[in-house]
Write a protein that binds this DNA or RNA. Structure first.
Lengths: 146, 146
DNA sequence: ACACTATTTATAAACATTATAAAGTAAGAC
DNA sequence: GTCTTACTTTATAATGTTTATAAATAGTGT
């Protein structure tokens, strides 16, 4: 099932003119299969077997490339190192208070809210709800035209 | 108006047995007055005038103390250094799906969601709504007692 | 297969943050 | 007010993550 995600990711990379190297393939594969949110170092160590000569810089470089293309999100918790998450299709909504238009947007970091809420309140947290309210670009332009 | 917040914070510190040093006073004062979310280094540089001999470690040490007491929240965006935010009374809700109980909790980081949503969607964002759903400790215990 | 350019590697550097030990100081007891 | 004690500050070094650099390597289209 994750094979499809991996293939889509590779196609997506090709489409933006990014070369597909064995290292990139392996890092992506690891991210797709990982159930956790690995750090750069964890990825590096996990791939040491396959690529004994791979440099840490390669991991960082490629994580940045993936992030810029939108395949991967960087999560910064309180601790020392960033964590990296393969982007799934979860999304939130931005709602225009003028015309009611709804626009999707992504924000992977909200998992952390669940963790903190659970920690602070003692709840077993199942899910959350989040919406952003404001004025869309068109309505904003209309309002400013007076 | 922020004088009250500062005094409350100092009282809160005294209450937990933390000594009030001139450096701590100054850091707290800066945080209360700051409209931004300063980094440790910004605080350090801002207080260089008043405390030419203050060590960077002092800033970090005290920010940790304030965080442990709950006066200050540490915000980690994508960039290198953490930002620190004096805790106000904003809060969110955790809602029990069993008994309907509502528990308050804090999470200052959601401002960042507004920024990102605005950036991605082009909205002028005014506010947001967020709730966490799950099972409270009591209902969880009841369910587990079978 | 070739050529061109992106990428990897190895290394060093930059940066934020923490640990350490000695000197200094707040806060309560007398 | 002074003393005493334990907590703080300071200065410095160390740690750990991330980025910069330059030479070597390897994808990709022709």
């Amino acid at each position: 099932m994750s094979e499809v995600q991996l293939r889509d990711a590779l196609d997506s990379l090709k489409g933006t003119g990014v070369r597909i190297t064995p290292q990139r393939h392996a890092i992506l594969e690891y991210l797709v299969d990982a159930m956790s949110h690995p750090t750069a170092d964890e990825i590096y160590k996990a791939l040491e077997g396959k690529f004994p000569n791979m440099s840490v810089a390669t991991v960082y470089n490629n994580l940045r490339v993936f992030r810029e293309v939108g395949l991967v999100k960087e999560l910064t918790y309180g601790d020392a190192s960033s964590r990296f998450d393969f982007v799934t299709t979860d999304h939130y909504h931005a709602i225009c208070e003028d015309c009611g238009k709804i626009v999707d947007f992504h924000y992977p970091g909200l998992d952390e809210v669940e963790h903190l809420a659970s920690h602070v309140t003692g709840f077993k947290v199942n899910n959350h709800r989040m919406e952003v309210y404001g004025t869309c670009k068109e309505c904003e332009a209309k309002a400013g035209a007076h």
